[in-house]
Design a protein around this nucleic acid. Structure first.
Lengths: 233, 233
DNA sequence: CCAAAAGTGTTAAGAGTACACCCATGC
DNA sequence: GCATGGGTGTACTCTTAACACTTTTGG
């Protein structure tokens, strides 16, 4: 029943979907341009084969840092893509990760074995290699869902951020208008933001107070079984 | 920087965490007894190497059917476990799946390359091979969470079930008491249960009406962006 | 003083929670 | 008629949702 052709010879890779938030309405995604076949010249998620002696998480982190200069503030496993025909060369099973960074804290560069590294707006992605468009769709869906029950969006903002930044970030990711007053009330009710003495003055209008997300307090609450939730935003 | 030792030679497997609900308070899990080393004689999740020409999902389904006789009603990818030292023989990356079945619809048997197949109460598991206890912990956590926002628990019940069965199932999985009246009101408010004309008469007490979960209606609502939710049950 | 963005409170409707008695059956 | 489990309603509290004006700054 088993022909030799069916014997296992499967490559294992990791791929990373890294989101960065630039400014109002601009959620971007980190892509690399391939300089080898197949899909040479096309854009793809950063990723590579997993080495024998490295854990999956370490493999993604290293790959990201070495090939693009990024160390994401948030990184978690997304889903594993393993259909038979995803790569024309070999059977490849890829463990995809979802990461969040504040791009202003990380300067990206292209490693020598990559043609280029660039941020792309999620609304204007180039044609992607392999099944990477599907992976990105899954990642976006997860991100949209997850910011509603876990306070992970802060990883996309500056350490000190204005409340309107958070509000715009949520609007951008969810793609809906939200009621400013109710949103603020809800977020504030969790008492997870520390107010700083600093103000953001930018363009016209009244300057805004800056806040810092209190990671320690959040971890504490999480252990007590607390759950963050923003209903339908 | 790369020694030959680091070159990739990784095996890819799938493992399945299959839950079955027997009766009040008895959530069980399907395990097989290994008859080869390592961990010979120990119990483990059903699983095996993925063949070159089969998708991951197909691999789990086939493995389950061939080795235990089960075709789960609900099956989804859980998480991928790939730490370096999970298997003493080789580097193995395992894509774990979470499945739900009604055990009375599936008679289990042990395939020839397996010592035995058995259901175990989740509260009384034997010592498990590899890192399978960790996989099970992740699966249980996911199940507890997921029944609160997706109506998947019905896959564990008979097609026609009494309301109290559902209630006990939730109590068993979540491990908390729930208010019968409020629970019923909430579930009924989704209008996803069709009442049948049949009654369940069993032991003493008033017979109970039997219901059927309306899959089609649920799929329809899901497409409209409907979300099922049972708050903290 | 005008434009722009930040900051703020109240009310009405809906959802969640707590709680106890009657009903239908078997023995 | 009693023991067992099934079936049901109401009042209170808390959360959500809708909604608009004042404040602070720069130009």
């Amino acid at each position: 029943m088993e022909s030799p052709k069916e014997l296992e010879d499967i490559k294992v890779t990791v791929d990373a979907v890294i989101f960065g938030y630039f400014k109002k309405n601009d959620l971007q995604l980190l892509l690399i341009q391939r300089n080898i076949k197949p899909f040479k010249g096309d854009w793809a998620l950063p990723g590579r084969l997993v080495l024998n002696n490295e854990n999956l998480d370490d493999a993604v982190k290293r790959e990201l840092y070495e090939k693009t200069g990024i160390r994401p503030d948030f990184l978690e496993q997304l889903y594993t893509f393993g259909n038979v025909d995803r790569d024309p060369r070999n059977r490849v099973v890829s463990i995809a990760y979802l990461g969040l960074v504040n791009p202003s804290y990380h300067k990206v560069f292209a490693d020598s074995d990559v043609e280029d590294v660039q941020w792309f707006s999620v609304n204007q992605l180039p044609k992607l290699a392999f099944d990477h468009q599907i992976i990105i769709d899954v990642a976006l869906k997860r991100l949209r869902k997850k910011i509603q029950y876990q306070p992970i969006a802060f990883n996309l903002l500056n350490e000190e951020f204005a409340f309107s930044d958070l509000e715009n970030l949520y609007k951008t990711i969810i793609g809906k208008e939200i009621d400013r007053r109710n949103f603020r009330k809800k977020i504030m009710s969790y008492e997870l933001l520390n107010e700083t003495n600093n103000l953001k003055k930018e363009g016209s209008g009244r300057p805004s107070k800056l806040f810092i997300f209190n990671q320690e307090k959040h971890r504490g609450l999480e252990e007590e079984g607390f759950y963050f939730e923003i209903k339908w935003v």
